[in-house]
Design a protein around this nucleic acid. Structure first.
Lengths: 112, 112
DNA sequence: ATTGACACCTAGCAATACTGGGTGTAGTAA
DNA sequence: TTACTACACCCAGTATTGCTAGGTGTCAAT
């Protein structure tokens, strides 16, 4: 159901989840799913590469640990990541408002 | 300023503009720009191929005409296009609501 | 004569979400 | 003991799609 609608917005979503409190990849997926009310059910192949990308750009920092015999990589926001989250947030606001305006200009008959 | 944020949402926007009243490519660009309050200032290389794609999928139908010595291709929604607009609209609603939920779960200090 | 708005087009590039594969641990059910 | 599920990580390759950068041509204004 996720489709490819979140192109360009995935980073914002991930940063938002990790900002809440540091989380490892699997927990990020869970967080996105639960917080969105099951709308975002992202495959691992989407989230893990995104996390790597974000770390490479210096927006996230990670640490390995072992919990219950399983190795985990826990991510948290860097200063740069916080700034980026703020900026992306504003961009989203701007973007979604603009979409609403465009849609608002279109008459649409009683939704069947 | 447009960035690549509208990936996956461009079709919705175009359909919405054309639904208002049939328009040619250049007018679609103008419509998006004015309706969005200058947020969406899309290059021709983005819009024209999208229009072709939409026509190819049967969501739009076009007709050539000549106005003031210039040839125009005017697009209008097909029945299928109307259904698609409705569906995409709902998807957008769903999507943007979900994003808001995810963001809402994140505490954010006083915006500097 | 040249510039700018109008009006169309396309090939190739770049970014990025996803598919489909892989590794390994722990717990539970058969 | 075996099998299956949840947990937890990884990567190569694909596909979609918006954009860059080029092109053609008309008309009005400077």
């Amino acid at each position: 159901m996720s489709g490819q609608a979140l192109k360009g917005h995935l980073d914002l979503l991930i940063l938002a989840v990790v900002a809440g409190d540091p989380a490892h990849g699997y927990a990020v997926i869970e967080g996105l799913r639960s917080r969105s009310g099951d709308v975002f059910d992202l495959p691992e192949g989407t989230v893990y590469p995104a996390l790597h990308r974000l770390e490479k750009s210096g927006l996230l920092r990670s640490e390995w640990s072992i919990v219950g015999g399983r190795r985990r990589r826990t991510y948290q926001l860097t200063k740069k990541g916080e700034r980026s989250l703020s900026a992306e947030w504003h961009k989203w606001d701007n973007f979604s408002t603009a979409v609403a305006k465009v849609l608002g200009g279109t008459p649409w008959p009683a939704t069947t």
